[in-house]
Nucleic acid binder design. Structure first.
Lengths: 217, 217
DNA sequence: TAGATTGTTAATCGATTAACAATC
DNA sequence: TAGATTGTTAATCGATTAACAATC
């Protein structure tokens, strides 16, 4: 599936929401009670109008003229909007170094992602636990997905196994794949795919660096 | 720095380039010599006009009416355009599970990124090697950056050390930070920052899944 | 030649920005 | 009250899409 928006809310808005959240968390830590769209815009390096529009999709209450938005309430609303309170269970396939890092990352639970188990082909790690979650042989993928009604899978295998595993996952009932492999997956339109595209990220960072070094000269 | 484009080329174009590349690699493997904008557009799920426009920024030669673009030449041109042939040296700070995964990832060299060393505070891993690259104590960061004239750093520390380390890196001469921590870094506009924002990615995947499950019912 | 595809220009669409009345 | 900020509407900007002449 490739969509640029979900209902009235555009993808760019979804991308900005976590930025607002991060900024709001640190404001809350500092004990700040209210924030204006202007202040938030400065922190995320954007325009106040964008902030106001974005927030209007998430907030239940209203901002108060002259004072702004209540930080605590805003955090709750955005968390709700992004589904952080609605935990999605997922499995992780491919428990190499990256897979281990992802399984061990405790931050996921904060944004509504719970990895229930990892799967690998390597007998040396099958049976071990990471972050309290068991690593099982790939042969058990289908039955676990079926039993727990899992819809989300995190793919962190080697590149050459990625397509095969993705096909297996879909056949077993998975409807969303978070792809951390560099493989270009070809899947039905009915499957949600999010590629963690390090090549693209780095290309953009490189361009920015080039621009900065050019200006410095 | 926050820019939406570099010269005439927009950020969205840069984001699509690696997608084209992935598709082209697998076409080359299959022995396909030519590809049309229509075929490429299908694979990356986009519009042929977008493809033609994007490619026009990268190609040196021209596509041939009726046959399309030469796969091999196109790959070379896009790689050149994205700077894959112009290797950037980088250091990695924070060699935990994620840091180890990044240091061990051999794919980076393919897109012009060479991690020359890792840095950590943990005596248990200092002195070890990953992927042939040494892990040094953080105390040596400044001198290594200075000696090798490093401009790029990959940040993979814990969240609470991220800002401190980022400040140290910038002070030592780093001009581009690829931030894999969940921390919201506050840095001068003169520094390129690319956040690997897993929260945002997952939020988008969740939305797509929601939409798919809604349609299935 | 006829037809497919490029490269480019024009039309459309949507997102960003600016402006401003409402209001606390 | 006066002034700052919201929420929303209008204007602008840029990206996407469609159309089409050029051409192999």
């Amino acid at each position: 599936m490739t969509e640029d928006s979900f209902g009235p809310v555009s993808l760019v808005t979804y991308n900005r929401m976590p930025l607002y959240l991060k900024a709001l968390y640190s404001m809350r830590e500092k004990g700040e009670k209210f924030v204006s769209s202007v202040a938030l815009a400065e922190v995320v390096r954007d325009n106040p109008s964008v902030v106001k529009k974005d927030l209007s999709y998430a907030i239940r209450g209203v901002g108060k003229p002259k004072v702004g938005y209540e930080v605590g309430a805003l955090i709750e609303d955005i968390e709700e909007f992004l589904g952080y309170n609605n935990t999605k269970e997922a499995i992780l396939v491919g428990v190499g170094r990256l897979g281990q890092a992802l399984m061990g990352y405790e931050g996921f639970s904060k944004y509504g992602l719970n990895i229930v188990a990892g799967f690998d082909v390597d007998d040396n790690i099958i049976g071990k636990k990471i972050n309290g979650k068991e690593i099982l042989p790939t042969g058990k993928i289908a039955s676990v997905i079926d039993k727990l009604k899992i819809k989300v899978a995190i793919l962190a295998t080697s590149k050459d196994k990625a397509q095969f595993m993705a096909d297996l996952l879909v056949k077993s009932g998975i409807r969303a794949i978070w792809n951390f492999t560099p493989a270009h997956l070809i899947l039905s339109e009915e499957i949600a795919v999010k590629n963690e595209d390090l090549a693209a990220s780095f290309a953009i960072l490189s361009m920015q660096l080039k621009e900065i070094l050019r200006k410095e000269k």
